[in-house]
Amino acid sequence: MNITHHISDELLFDYANGALEEGWSIAVATHLALCPSCRKRLATMEAAGGMALEAIEIEPANASTEEFSWEAMRARIDNVAPAAPVPARPKHSTGRAASLPEPLRSYIGGDVDAVKWKPLGLGAYHYPIKTSDQDISVRLLRIPAGKPVPEHTHGGRELTLVLKGSFSDISGRFGPGDFEETDESVDHQPVADPGEDCICLAVTDAPLKFKSRIVRMIQPLLGI
């Protein structure tokens, strides 16, 4: 895999610091599974977090409070049955090679050939992915070779991770593993490159906010 577009420092830092919502984090973590160089950057950030933790100055503690705290911890450990040793998992499973990495594969419930695509029109398909954040839309997109991404508007941040095939837009060419980060200030029109359908993970601020409760309820059924 020859990745040329990576996660920005600001976004990766939010992920390292635990400040990034689940929806965006799926795209970040899935790129990390594919990209040793971003994992190295993440490790540096987590080490900086560790140093910040280490540097916290503690006020001279009330000794009896600390004793009480330790006794509570001990009691808890004594009451817990020793966990069964976790059997080491084989480094590489013997099954058919998966093409979608974790954590994305679990969110989809299978590999790319198991996806139950829903038509978007003009030959494009999508597959919405449920997360705990209603305000963030996470989905797979399948764009036919040579065609533009349909109905493409977004009001805020958009993260795109290419899984298969490639697309091109004003910022360049994006192939498998490449990560694009845009916002409303960027006017881009991604077009799948000819030759192969492009499958990508797209995460956006949820595009539409309906006031009516009924519309809100059927919104997921419509897939918008």
Partner: peptide, 26 residues
């Protein structure tokens, strides 16, 4: 960090899995 995310957001933190067959190793 992860304990805090669990407690406040009630979600798991999506993370890569180095034992996953689709993981690209260092």
């Amino acid at each position: 960090r992860n304990v805090r995310i669990d407690a406040f957001r009630k979600t798991n933190r999506p993370e890569f899995d180095p034992n996953d067959p689709a993981f690209v190793p260092d």
